[in-house]
Design a protein around this nucleic acid. Structure first.
Length: 168
DNA sequence: TAGGCCATCTGGTCCT
DNA sequence: AGGACCAGATGGCCTA
């Protein structure tokens, strides 16, 4: 279930669960379904209404169950999409790490650790640079994730680059 | 075969 | 109410 497309996974899941649950539901219906031919006329007068009510209650419960299940399936699909975005972000983070060959297998945890150490390294470089030439660094990093570029080419403060927030 | 990693499902919680 | 986010559980795949 872990491989293959998300859509086919969802289909696999649905067919799998229908396959196991359906026989049980069928047998349950067989046990409890309202059957008027089993009752005498007298009993029918009293029970047919009650039976019909019970039957409709069962139907509406079944519909509720179906609705819940379809909501759950939709939530699962959203969750899969969300996790795909997360994985893509990890992949992008990995490719932005220098001295890590593109074909290197890196776990998410390793990616985070390397990225963290790389950031520390860059911060150290910035600090050293600041001490050396006493000029403000042209790159100004601000929270949240905004980079304001100040260079000869684009002195305009409006040239703001958003570093994140775009879906993958 | 055990352990690590990953994708997915699921129920709970928070937010809009 | 519905969606986003989160953490735990589960099962599959891969490697030492």
């Amino acid at each position: 279930m872990s491989t293959g497309s998300a859509a086919s996974d969802a289909e696999d899941y649905e067919t799998c669960h229908r396959g196991t649950a359906a026989p049980l539901e069928r047998s349950a219906r067989k046990m409890t379904c309202y059957n008027p031919s089993r009752y005498s006329d007298e009993e029918l007068d009293d029970d047919s209404l009650e039976g019909r009510i019970k039957h409709e209650r069962r139907l509406s419960k079944a519909h509720q169950k179906e609705a819940r299940q379809s909501q759950r399936n939709a939530a699962n699909a959203r969750e899969r999409a969300r996790m795909r975005v997360l994985s893509k972000a990890f992949s992008r983070l990995k490719t932005s790490l220098p001295w890590v060959p593109a074909d290197t297998k890196l776990s998410k945890l390793d990616t985070l650790r390397l990225a963290s150490s790389y950031i520390s390294h860059l911060r150290q470089l910035l600090q050293d640079d600041r001490f050396e030439n006493r000029f403000a660094h042209p790159v100004n990093l601000t929270w949240p994730f905004m980079m304001t570029g100040r260079s000869e080419d684009s002195p305009d403060i409006s040239s703001t680059v958003r570093l994140c927030g775009a879906t993958a």
